[in-house]
Simulated scan of single mutants.
Amino acid sequence: MTLRLTVSGMLDVTHTLAVLRLHSLPGQEEIDEAAAQVHRILRFDDHLVEVHVALNPDAVIVQHDAPAKLLPKLRSTIDHWFGLTQDTSSAYASLQTLPSFARLAQESDHLRLISYPTIFEALATTVIGQQVSLAAARTLAGRYVENLGELHQSGLRAFPTAQATASLEPAQIQSIIRCPLARATTLHTVAHWYQDFGQHLIHDHEQFLTQLLALRGVGPWTRDYMALRGLRAPEIFLDTDLVVRRALNNLGVSENELKDLPSQAGYLATLLLWHHDSRQHD
């Protein structure tokens, strides 16, 4: 079956593929850059859905095998993942008063935040990626998916559930991911919390993030990164991120300019700095 989801404004397909490629996990998804297509398995409760997502500037075309009753969930999942209905025009317009960001916005005028299909995937990968390089985080998360992700007949695996993660002891998670015990303990703690409380607070961002930060092993960067890429909070400017700080220094952005950053454009400012840094290191 085919589902067509229109984009509010325009989708920068090249940027979207670049973000997906940076975070792609082996065995979980296949990215065909020539066809601008992503092949993944999505979980809806106990149902696995195979999707082929074709990216176009004005629409996303989804080939899927979801039953009719799951179509609303499939629509909202794809929309959340790619931010298709998010109107970026006001954030772009608000950055025009800040010289450094105005230049970046003019150079890359159709960026949008690429998230994750599910909140728990965003949460687990954020915890796994704490204080390690992106390459190391992908390696650790790849082991996590390979060992705990349910295998689909396509050969791909669905992202592990909070329940599957919480059912293990931290030492078992450590053995699977081959990470420090403290990191495995944090993942175990977060999975338990999400299963018992977090999943019921998704629409109450303040409570979700307050409780998350209170968990042992979770710091401000994890909270803010989760708010940005997991919950899609537009006000988050991730100035604690090393790549963001490097881009700010490279561009010579003043503290006064940062003080004037519009509150609802924090996400876009972060994206523009990430994108600028990636182009400097291509």
Rank of each mutant, 00 (worst) to 15 (best):
L231V: 07
D65S: 15
T97N: 14
A102Y: 05
E206N: 13
R178C: 08
L248C: 01
R112Q: 10
T2H: 11
H152A: 12
L215H: 02
V53C: 03
L3T: 07
V253L: 08
S90K: 13
S100D: 06
A166L: 04
L242I: 14
Q207Y: 01
A91Y: 03
L242P: 05
N256T: 15
D45W: 07
S154F: 07
P67F: 09
A265D: 03
A93S: 15
A191Y: 11
Y194P: 05
R246A: 15
L70N: 05
D196S: 09
A66M: 03
P220I: 14
S24K: 07
L20Q: 05
A141F: 02
A54Q: 03
R21V: 01
I173N: 03
L261D: 07
K259R: 15
R232L: 10
T139Y: 05
V38I: 15
T139D: 07
R232E: 13
S133Y: 12
Q37G: 00
D12I: 01
V218E: 06
A36K: 00
A265N: 06
R157Y: 06
L140Y: 15
D65T: 13
F237Q: 11
Q211K: 12
R223P: 04
T118Q: 11
I202W: 06
S94P: 08
Q211C: 05
A68P: 03
N249F: 01
H200E: 13
Q199N: 11
Q28Y: 14
L113C: 15
Q264A: 12
V243Y: 03
T97S: 15
N147W: 02
A214E: 07
L5D: 04
P170S: 01
G266P: 03
F208N: 09
Q163N: 04
V145S: 08
P72R: 02
A162E: 08
W274V: 06
D196E: 14
D87S: 10
H276E: 07
P99K: 02
D196W: 00
A18M: 08
L55N: 01
R143Q: 12
Y225E: 14
L42I: 14
I119C: 05
D46H: 11
V13D: 00
F82I: 04
T161E: 10
F101G: 08
Q172D: 10
Q172V: 02
A59Q: 11
K73G: 09
S278N: 00
F101K: 05
A105P: 06
T161L: 11
E121R: 12
S133R: 12
V145G: 09
T6A: 12
H203V: 13
Q96D: 10
I31N: 07
L271I: 09
A59R: 10
A158M: 04
A36T: 00
P160M: 07
D224H: 13
L261C: 06
E206F: 03
G129T: 12
L231F: 08
D109N: 15
S90L: 14
V53N: 01
I128S: 08
V19K: 02
H15M: 01
S254M: 10
P99R: 02
A124C: 11
L273C: 11
R4P: 00
H275A: 00
P99Q: 04
A162R: 03
R43W: 04
D241W: 05
L242G: 04
L201S: 09
P99M: 04
E29D: 11
L140D: 15
T240H: 14
T125A: 10
G129C: 14
G217A: 02
H52L: 11
A269Y: 06
L209C: 13
F208H: 12
A166F: 05
S89L: 08
L213F: 02
